[in-house]
């Protein structure tokens, strides 16, 4: 479906970045790079967005929100990690308050390097994300990375007992449990 590719809507989330990458993302929507000519709009609403653009290393305060936004986006969806921080932790790597990159929490499809990532690179990253997005359908099941091990264990157990597996429900339950746990104890653990 090439028509779908012509209207990706973006959700931009800042997981505690230094704002350098966010400004570059905003520069993409300005007159010089003008992403709207490809039909890209910056939608603030996860329920109507297709591409999640994340910047920043995931801080302990933002990780539950990041998961929540990711779960609220309807499939098919892709994630683009913009900036060195979002890819690996960048200059903040191994600090006491960060989680060294987005992919520890949610599956990332495209990594855009650079500190700060240049607008050209971000556009290229989104173009690559669109190709991945085209292959996904509305029945794709995406498993957040944090709960992947638990999820596999539960599914294996259920299959062993011959039960019907409702994958979406298992993921939903695990994530909401995780979010509740993290929101209840917002201090560093």
């Amino acid at each position: 479906m090439s028509i779908r590719k012509k209207s990706p809507w973006i959700l931009h989330y800042n997981c505690g970045s230094c704002n350098g990458c966010d400004i570059e993302i905003l520069a993409c929507t300005g007159p010089k790079y003008d992403v709207e000519r490809f039909g890209i709009i910056n939608k603030g609403n996860p329920k109507q967005a297709d591409i999640l653009v994340v910047t920043g290393p995931v801080t302990k305060r933002t990780r539950a929100r990041l998961l929540r936004l990711y779960m609220q986006m309807p499939e098919p969806k892709v994630v683009v990690a913009v900036g060195a921080c979002a890819c690996t932790g960048g200059v903040f790597r191994h600090m006491y308050n960060v989680e060294n990159g987005v992919d520890r929490y949610i599956p990332v499809d495209v990594y855009v390097p650079g500190c700060a990532a240049r607008p050209e690179n971000i556009l290229k990253g989104i173009a690559l994300a669109l190709e991945i997005w085209e292959k996904k359908t509305k029945d794709t099941i995406e498993i957040p990375t944090v709960i992947k091990k638990e999820y596999e264990k539960i599914v294996a157990k259920m299959l062993m007992h011959g039960q019907v597996v409702d994958r979406r429900k298992i993921i939903y339950d695990l994530v909401s449990k995780y979010i509740q746990r993290k929101l209840e104890t917002p201090k560093c653990d």
Binding site: M1, R4, K6, S7, D50, P74
Partner: peptide
């Protein structure tokens, strides 16, 4: 285009 895209979302 947006119309067609929204039809293909869950």
């Amino acid at each position: 285009y947006d119309f067609v895209k929204l039809l293909q979302k869950r």
